[in-house]
Design a protein around this nucleic acid. Sequence first.
DNA 1: ACTCCTTGCGTATATGGTACGCATTGAGCG
DNA 2: CGCTCAATGCGTACCATATACGCAAGGAGT
Lengths: 246, 246
Amino acid sequence: MPDDIGNELPHALNVLWGRAKPKGRGRTPALSLERIVAAAIALADEEGLAALSMARLAERLGCAPMSLYRHVAGKDDLQLFMLAAAPGPPPEFDTAPADWRGSLTRWAVELFDVYLRHPWIAQLANSPPMDPGQLAWLDAALRSLGGTPLDPRARFSVVMLVLHYVRGAAQLLTSIPAGPEKRADETYAALLTELADPARFPALAHAVEAGVFDPRAGAAPDDDFRAGLDHLLDGVGVAIERAARA
Amino acid sequence: MPDDIGNELPHALNVLWGRAKPKGRGRTPALSLERIVAAAIALADEEGLAALSMARLAERLGCAPMSLYRHVAGKDDLQLFMLAAAPGPPPEFDTAPADWRGSLTRWAVELFDVYLRHPWIAQLANSPPMDPGQLAWLDAALRSLGGTPLDPRARFSVVMLVLHYVRGAAQLLTSIPAGPEKRADETYAALLTELADPARFPALAHAVEAGVFDPRAGAAPDDDFRAGLDHLLDGVGVAIERAARA
DNA sequence: ACTCCTTGCGTATATGGTACGCATTGAGCG
DNA sequence: CGCTCAATGCGTACCATATACGCAAGGAGT
């Protein structure tokens, strides 16, 4: 049997990869996996991951809590489904686009947007990508480097580097708690200003004094993200030139 | 009153920054915050974050569950204390070390080690660094760039970039579930080999065929990490050269 | 109309976080 | 030397949550 590997995997993965047996006759389902997952995503988006409980989800769906378990093996399974569904399809590239930097930038920005729309993804994604949704994004990123002279291992390394950066930047941005009547960055800036004792944290105090954390007028929220991404892609460019010469 | 900012903050932060009022007389404490936090860290290290409950922690400490609440405002507070204590002190640099790349590399590798020793840190750190422990690490990283011509904002951007990468790489490495009688990377490689349909995920299938995920003999576990870090620091080098010319 | 499979859900249990209040104890004071 | 009082330790109880189990309901195919 070629698929005995699936026996050790969570139920959700088998369903996602189309390994679930087709159902036949019986009572008409009032619930569906798609509806459950969509409702769970909406709930997590609106009230945060902590507010997502089987009971609240059932309430939102107008069914009894235990009904959910006919479609989902447990809460962990549900979260796997959410992770696979929430990002949506990745941007599409040719197998070897001429402009790797533009392609990879677009990929990163769109993924950044996904994380901003669904901040709970960063808290949930504790396992390596294994579902079709995440593998599609991974494949798209690898494709964006298809026209470069990088070897496969370097390509993967670059993609993971960008992925980690996107994820971290988005998580940081969404995690800053907004004070009352203040924007989030102002709250954090005020706190750091008070805590950055120059004797204890000289470099940090210097950064605070230089106004690194002050909100700038007319700056888009993802300006800092784009700047860091450019640093990162400069490094990729160096690696590509080096590989081209070799 | 200059510290009314603290009123909105979690209790743990006020204690960590030394704002707690000194206690006087009374019964001799059998428990201490340090003991509680140390036991919580040990428990999370050994059995994972999910196994950390107030009840299990009290059992390990030989006290009643509710005794913990005399020292910790709640589970969230406890987790803040854990985050501040677990990393330990960062490596020490001069204010402007001559070798920024060596210093920053050392910082990154040591932080990577911290994440590998305490995998739960990545799952817990949902808020920006605000406690003395994390600010000390942040300050050390900023200091490692003190000798470069980068402006403060660029320095901070670089540090966050490295931080996100270290965190993501460590989380990925520790999150791969090890199958029975197999090393973790073999499990993931076998799974990807089966799932990477060349028609659906051409770039990913190509990477799998090229053996990107096959375990290499004689490779240290952090080889991949070091390779990605080098890519990243190449980009930082580009930015430094550009700033030096300007 | 009968049958049987699948879905929906009520009940019950275990686990976990924590509010509340009382008992305990030891330091300082009279 | 004993009293006082504050701070500690902890028992009880309550609520939220996940979920095992088994039965009821209802439609598809015969």
